[in-house]
Design a protein around this nucleic acid. Sequence first.
DNA 1: GACATTTAGAAACAGGCTGTATGTATGTCA
DNA 2: TGACATACATACAGCCTGTTTCTAAATGTC
Lengths: 212, 212
Amino acid sequence: MSRPRTQAERLAATRATLMREARLIFAASGYDAAATEEIVQRSNVTRGALYYHFKDKRAVFEAIVEEVAREIAAAIDRKADPVGDPLQALIEGTRAFLDACLDPAVRRIYLIDAPAVLGWHRWREIDAPHGLRSLREGVTAVLAERPGQGLSVEPVTFLLSGAFNEAALWVAEAKDEKTARREMDRSLVQLMERLFGSPAEPARPPRARARA
Amino acid sequence: MSRPRTQAERLAATRATLMREARLIFAASGYDAAATEEIVQRSNVTRGALYYHFKDKRAVFEAIVEEVAREIAAAIDRKADPVGDPLQALIEGTRAFLDACLDPAVRRIYLIDAPAVLGWHRWREIDAPHGLRSLREGVTAVLAERPGQGLSVEPVTFLLSGAFNEAALWVAEAKDEKTARREMDRSLVQLMERLFGSPAEPARPPRARARA
DNA sequence: GACATTTAGAAACAGGCTGTATGTATGTCA
DNA sequence: TGACATACATACAGCCTGTTTCTAAATGTC
């Protein structure tokens, strides 16, 4: 296994190594400061190999962003049970997202650098079938239970997405991460419970709030 | 006035020109693709002048980010009346922010590139006395009217900030910007009204949402 | 099983861009 | 008016990306 004999194995192994090492360096140094030379040295190949596998440096980064997006979405879907209460699923999914963002690599690559390097549009395009899809489905399910609230799916989805992304960064940057995480969790739950309110009928829990 | 005689005038004029041209180029090309050579050519100076005024390229960018932050905050404060209803002030401030972000330069420089180039922490540090301060004050005022809701200022401030930033980008990137803007406005108002609810009962003009 | 062909990567090269070091004319002030 | 500081200009060194050319091993073909 140390020296893959077949071409296909060799190809896959090299690509996987490049992706792994590049991800570490992108996470540690940021996209701009990450030199392709360092990536290939740690991968025990030359820059020729990198440019054989990827069109340019940006393409390497984009592939990694897609990978990270898939991982995040998988973590969310693992926690956000679609059969139970939709609002609860949304809350659990959000928690899974915040936990995924405890990894500095995720924050640096996915939240900070990706929009700048790939552009906001492309970034959202990549996320569309993953985290964003999961969130949109959650919002859709919650709103389906609560018709006539005057909330539309798309704006709410992006509002929440932006809020969650910033929440992750705020927690990570806080002096006391543990405490910040707990504080943010409370506020997030409050935000979603109040935004969406209780399902259906006017019958609301104890402290019914008047509508404006 | 075309050739400032005194040194101080010359200094200020050159710096102002560099900032103006750099801002245009950073906005159009993004930080990375913006060459210092192009900045100085359009400013009718050489790179020597740029490196006399600024430590490096990043310092130019940082100065521009501070400038943009001040402008945004000024636009917000112009609209968010602190003497009226706090919630209404918050909503108006948010609208002013979204309007400020209609300028592509603001979005590209301030929302997209700044966190990547300067780092999230430094970015927030720069914003702290400006937009973030304004938002925090607004949230504080609103929560002061509504005690015991279990919402703490800091997490809510960052949640909202993240939501607003993403809202601005979503609106800008939408196919139909006008419609998107209206949709987002409705959702934003809903979000804030529901999150904060109605003020506590005691002593308050019945239903006066008086503001003009 | 020889042989052309493709694959996967190596090696070398060119260009651009940043930052720095040094030079210089003009303004400033005793 | 002469020394010094200011506000740039010029020249240079180094890094980093992307491209081009080259090569050895693997693969398909007869």
